[in-house]
Amino acid sequence: MAETDTDPDAAKASQDEISAEMREIHDVYRRSRDDGGPEETSARMNFPPYRSSLLRSPTKSLHHTDPEEIELHSPAFGERDVRTLESDLTIQHGGEPIGERIVVTGRIVDGDGRPIRHQLVEVWQANAAGRYVHKRDQHPAPIDPNFTGVGRTITGPDGEYTFTTIKPAPYPWKNHYNAWRPAHIHFSLFGTDFTQRLITQMYFPGDPLFDLDPIYQSITDQSARDRLVAAYDHSVANHEWNTGYRWDIVLSGSSRTWFESDAASDEEH
């Protein structure tokens, strides 16, 4: 490969060049899978088409470690931390935000299917014009004075969460020339174990930018990429008010020894 520019804001490469790089990596992965190679269920930390990853991803193998006691626990959050209204991103200002009002709902479980109960979920996103309320976002799209784009909630007893928000728009970035991110909502999640911590992005079905986006395509496996795409769910829609999406999230497996009594005592918490 030619020397790659590591300046994430250089915007030098064309979309065709970035797409060709991604295709090559995916082809190698698919051939490896065909030859019985391992399935990759995560994003690759070193993914050269995403230029910012070049100097920020480890080049040595991660060190396999058995969790100690503290790693089998996770910080605890509750009503003291999060007000109920924080799950509605459309009521944080004096007026209605501009855009398509949606509800995003789903369940969070761990790798064994156990619901993640009473745990913190944080979201943030661009507005309906593709603009973040962040001083580093220089995209000349309008800021909506009625939309900040930040929400929080605590999951329910079955691991369920619900946010009311506005559908975000795609926005441009400088990874390469004329680069656009598919519309997405950032999610931050905690589990029962420290090791289950996850920050990710939820996407919307059918986005034409999927194939072009090196962050989304850093997940080399199609079925793994699909896990980040919400499903349109009309049962979540409300008459003359909102459309709806469902997105279930699976955290990695807990390494704790679980007993039936743990679930029971958790209910009373």
Partner: peptide
């Protein structure tokens, strides 16, 4: 098919990105 609870493969991560500063 959308991800259902029957598929217990962990959801992949994505970068925190540049704009978490006003949120996290």
């Amino acid at each position: 098919s959308p991800q259902t609870s029957a598929d217990l493969t962990p959801t992949p991560a994505q970068t925190v990105g540049p704009f978490y500063g006003y949120a996290l």
